[in-house]
Amino acid sequence: MSQKEWPLWEVFIRSKQGLDHKHVGSLHAADAEMAIQNARDVYTRRLEGVSIWVVESKHVHASNPDDAAAFYEPANDKIYRHPTFYTVPDSIKHM
């Protein structure tokens, strides 16, 4: 009796109004509606969320960790992007 597994879904939860949805884990469900219901039961038994997103895992595209050094390198030598790069005279306030 071999059969297909229910698809895997990634679950994202907004813990309260004003905050981002955050990845919390995954689960299996036959469709999106069931995934949301299961996510409520698995990940919000203690009011951990006010909003749930589910995305089928196969639709998530990720950067490759092996390329991380080269991939993020362009941001590495641009310290002038940070406010601390600039010296402001002591007498200048509110900057």
């Binding site: 597994e5 895997l8 884990g25 995954s26 689960l27 299996h28 039961d41 698995v42 990940y43 038994r45």
Partner: peptide
């Protein structure tokens, strides 16, 4: 009932962690 339901949740969190390593739930 709530306690036993939590244990089901624990099992599911953990299966989900194992699946990130390439294991299949079935």
């Amino acid at each position: 009932l709530a306690k036993v339901q939590d244990e089901a949740g624990h099992g599911l969190y953990l299966y989900s962690a194992a699946e990130t390593l390439g294991a299949s739930r079935d």
